[in-house]
Simulated assay, not measured.
Amino acid sequence: MNCRYCNETCIRKGKQNHIQIYQCKNCLKYQRISYKYQSKLIEDWQIVQLTKEGCGIRSISRILNIAGSTVIRRILKISNALKRPFTILYGQTYQVDELLFTYIGNKNSRVCIAYSLNPITGEIIDLVVGRRNKRI
Score class of each variant (00 low, 15 high):
1 M>G: 13
4 R>F: 08
4 R>T: 05
5 Y>L: 04
7 N>L: 09
9 T>S: 15
9 T>A: 12
10 C>G: 08
10 C>W: 01
11 I>H: 13
11 I>D: 08
11 I>R: 15
14 G>L: 09
15 K>S: 08
18 H>R: 12
18 H>W: 03
21 I>W: 02
24 C>G: 08
24 C>R: 09
27 C>T: 03
27 C>E: 00
28 L>E: 10
31 Q>T: 11
32 R>W: 06
34 S>T: 13
34 S>M: 07
34 S>G: 08
37 Y>N: 13
39 S>R: 01
44 D>E: 04
45 W>Q: 09
45 W>S: 10
45 W>P: 00
48 V>G: 01
48 V>H: 03
48 V>N: 02
48 V>I: 13
49 Q>H: 12
50 L>A: 04
52 K>V: 07
52 K>F: 12
54 G>N: 02
54 G>D: 00
55 C>G: 00
56 G>F: 02
56 G>L: 01
57 I>L: 11
57 I>F: 03
60 I>Q: 13
60 I>L: 02
61 S>L: 01
62 R>K: 14
65 N>Q: 14
68 G>Y: 01
68 G>T: 06
71 V>M: 01
76 L>T: 07
76 L>K: 14
77 K>R: 08
80 N>T: 04
80 N>D: 04
83 K>Q: 14
83 K>D: 09
83 K>M: 13
84 R>F: 02
84 R>T: 14
90 Y>G: 07
90 Y>S: 11
91 G>L: 06
92 Q>F: 05
93 T>I: 10
94 Y>M: 06
96 V>Y: 04
100 L>I: 12
101 F>H: 15
101 F>K: 14
102 T>F: 13
104 I>C: 09
104 I>Y: 07
106 N>I: 02
106 N>M: 02
107 K>Q: 08
108 N>P: 00
108 N>C: 06
108 N>E: 10
109 S>N: 14
110 R>T: 11
111 V>D: 02
114 A>D: 00
118 N>Q: 02
120 I>K: 09
121 T>F: 02
121 T>H: 03
124 I>W: 01
124 I>A: 05
125 I>V: 10
127 L>A: 06
128 V>R: 15
130 G>D: 05
132 R>K: 14
134 K>A: 10
135 R>A: 15
